[in-house]
């Protein structure tokens, strides 16, 4: 696509088309006095760059059409012959006219989040904390697989073309292992596989990661509300907070199940309470089956409101038995 002059914005900026090696194009507007790289970054096009001062040449690109020049008086790490051939260091280059600039790399890596990949994974352990819930682990051999807590993958049920989506219940620092929590449904494809066919060592295909429900950084109290197997992304986020840099914020997860007989993951939550003094947990069940289980009554949102005024004692250290 050729550069056109009609997209100059109200501030008098010019339109610049960035053409990537794989044919992808991104259109940005570069204001007078603004460097092309700065404009691209500001407009959500994450070009590869480093020094931002014309020294390192990481951001070198080629001017195909239009007019783009280096800021006057700025010595840059380009030979005169390279400049004559259209090379520009975008971190110190203006755009004086609508232009087309070719990048020497594909857009794919910078769009990776939008383009999930497929990986092979191996089934590890499989457990059923109660008749309605299964927990299993997968190991991904590929070291390039990464994800953010809160994201999910699609998993192909072996020997079928059926795919199901599950959030990771573990955090990225546990890779290559990932944990999943699945609600078992009679006749469900994944449920049937897990209950009848699954064996440790099975190969499964996964696709991802996907999803934009991820943690945002803030210092205020983090409140999480989860019901049933919806606990998975919350556990992952709590583990990510434990291992991320800086001070941990106060955390208040409220987790409930519809009946107390179906309550699960109590040990997992207790462990995280032990590991993070900043974490309070509210556990609830909608209906009681009669046992004195220490769970609050109601759904996790109601339990959250009721619990906010109380402050529980820290968990016991359980020193008597090793491990």
């Amino acid at each position: 696509m050729a550069a056109d002059g009609d997209s100059a914005d109200a501030r008098g900026g010019v339109s610049v088309t960035l053409r990537f090696e794989d044919g992808a194009e991104r259109r940005i507007v570069v204001a007078p006095g603004q460097f092309v790289l700065d404009a691209a970054l500001a407009q959500g096009v994450p070009l590869i760059h480093q020094c931002r001062s014309g020294n390192c040449s990481t951001c070198v690109a080629t001017l195909i059409e239009g007019e783009s020049a280096t800021a006057p008086g700025r010595p840059v790490a380009l030979l005169a012959s390279e400049a004559a051939a259209g090379r520009r260091l975008l971190c110190v280059s203006y755009a004086h006219a609508p232009s087309v600039i070719r990048e020497h790399y594909p857009a794919t890596p910078i769009d990776a989040a939008a383009a999930p990949r497929r990986f092979s994974a191996t089934l590890g352990a499989l457990a059923r904390p109660n008749p309605k819930v299964a927990i299993f682990t997968l190991a991904v051999a590929d070291e390039t697989f990464a994800f953010a807590s809160g994201q999910y993958v699609r998993i192909r049920i072996p020997h079928t073309d059926e795919w199901r989506s599950y959030s990771m219940a573990s955090a990225a620092h546990e890779l290559p292992a990932m944990t999943f929590i699945v609600k078992l449904i009679a006749g469900g494809a994944m449920s049937e596989y897990l209950l009848r066919a699954a064996r440790p060592g099975d190969r499964l295909e996964i696709e991802g990661p996907r999803g934009a429900f991820v943690l945002r950084r803030s210092r205020g109290q983090h409140v999480f509300v989860a019901g049933g197997t919806g606990l998975a992304p919350i556990l992952s986020m709590l583990d990510a907070i434990r291992r991320r840099p800086g001070m941990r914020p106060p955390m208040l997860p409220s987790f409930g199940c519809s009946r107390d007989a179906e309550f699960f993951a109590r040990d997992e939550i207790e462990l995280r309470r032990w590991w993070m003094p900043e974490l309070r947990a509210i556990l609830s069940a909608g209906r009681s089956d009669g046992a004195d289980d220490g769970l609050r009554r109601g759904n996790p949102v109601d339990a959250l409101d009721a619990a906010r005024s109380t402050r529980p004692a820290p968990p016991p250290i359980c020193a008597a038995r090793p491990r």
Binding site: G124, A125, L126, A127, I135, F136, T137, A139, A169, S170, E174, P176, A177, M178, T179, I181, L235, R242, A265, D267, E268, L271, W274, W275, C318, R323
Partner: peptide, 15 residues
Amino acid sequence: GAPRGSIAPSRQYQP
């Protein structure tokens, strides 16, 4: 060791 996560009870001193 084995893959961790919530499936096998982690040790209380896992961190």
